[in-house]
């Protein structure tokens, strides 16, 4: 049953990806402007434009164009940048390290802080700590990611440096090859920025779900049997409480990607997120669509992973 469930999810993911390619393909058509003319440059003659148009296959019937578009996509070719004619795949691959570093650290921080603070809050419900955490979380969910980033830059970079404590460097990315400490030091503020809003959401989610579970009969039974409180919370409670958290995780991958775009723009990290914003400014449609496809693929894969994790956490799904 579990295998059938996974197969269905994979099929659904493929369907979604196909719809996305259809969408991106259509967007090229409704987009204003002529890509051949854009690529040819201002001084190009009509013949040159026609030649480029022919090279790109833009004079072919729409279905043939779609076929070759899909064919190129399947072979990993995301097209060429309007801006400098470079392959979109190569361009984005070059931007991957900052993005990967940001996502990795940010996601770890987000889940670790969010879930553990949520558990802490729930097990000490109504305490001063609980109320403080809840208020902080409410502040967190009320903040746009970029405002968090800007305020961190202002307070932790600018004010600290001015006060003679240059702990946090300003915006920029240092590759891992420059040493892990330098790499991490330059990424701390972006990580915190990316994680704050989501950690607040997960604090609220974990707290609520944990409180629900701790009120359930089987937890009460475990307590009545004399199971130690720690064991009740971590063995009986947390496992069940994490199920809604894991579900939410699948939904939030898209939000995470949005956060990456914003964080990279605030700190000028030069990753894929910043590339897409720059592509927007310069009207570089192939780059934008390439990022759309990569991001959608990431979401589909991540959702699949979440579904599998969910199935392992909650035996009921496997049977349903």
């Amino acid at each position: 049953m579990f295998r059938r469930f996974i197969v269905r999810r994979v099929l659904l993911g493929v369907l979604v990806l196909w719809l996305v390619t259809l969408g991106t393909f259509c967007m090229f058509f409704v987009a204003p402007g002529d890509p051949a003319r854009t690529l040819a440059g201002r001084q190009a003659t009509e013949e040159q434009v026609a030649l480029i148009r022919h090279d790109l296959g833009l004079d072919q019937p729409i279905l043939v164009q779609y076929g070759s578009y899909m064919n190129r996509l399947i072979h990993g070719d995301l097209g060429q940048s309007y801006f400098n004619g470079e392959s979109v795949g190569t361009l984005l691959a070059g931007d991957l390290p900052p993005t990967a570093s940001l996502v990795l650290g940010g996601a770890v921080l987000w889940l670790a802080v969010g879930v553990s603070a949520g558990v802490l809050s729930a097990t000490r419900a109504r305490s001063l700590l609980d109320r403080t955490l809840t208020l902080v979380a409410l502040g967190g969910v009320s903040m746009p990611t970029f405002v968090v980033g800007l305020l961190l830059l202002y307070l932790l970079f600018f004010q600290l440096t001015k006060a003679g404590w240059p702990i946090f460097p300003p915006d920029s990315y240092v590759p891992l090859t420059a040493g892990p400490w330098e790499w991490a030091r330059h990424l701390i503020l972006p990580w915190v920025t990316l994680a704050t809003v989501q950690a607040a959401v997960y604090l609220r989610l974990t707290r609520g779900s944990m409180l629900d579970v701790l009120g359930d009969d089987y937890v009460r039974t475990a307590r009545a049997k004399g199971v130690p409180e720690r064991r009740v919370i971590y063995r009986h409670g947390l496992r069940a409480a994490l199920t809604p958290v894991v579900t939410q995780l699948g939904v939030d991958i898209g939000t995470l990607i949005g956060g990456v775009v914003v964080t990279e723009s605030v700190f000028g990290l030069g990753g894929i997120g910043q590339a897409v914003v720059q592509a927007f400014v310069s009207g570089d449609l192939p780059v934008i669509m390439g990022v759309v496809l990569i991001a959608s693929g990431a979401v589909v894969v991540a959702n699949l992973a979440v579904d599998i994790a969910y199935g392992l956490l909650d035996a009921r799904v496997r049977l349903a």
Partner: peptide
Amino acid sequence: DVVLSFPYLIFAIAAVSI
């Protein structure tokens, strides 16, 4: 489900660029 798990900001960038 699909709309909820969209990489939304990216789609917004794509749409607004059109």
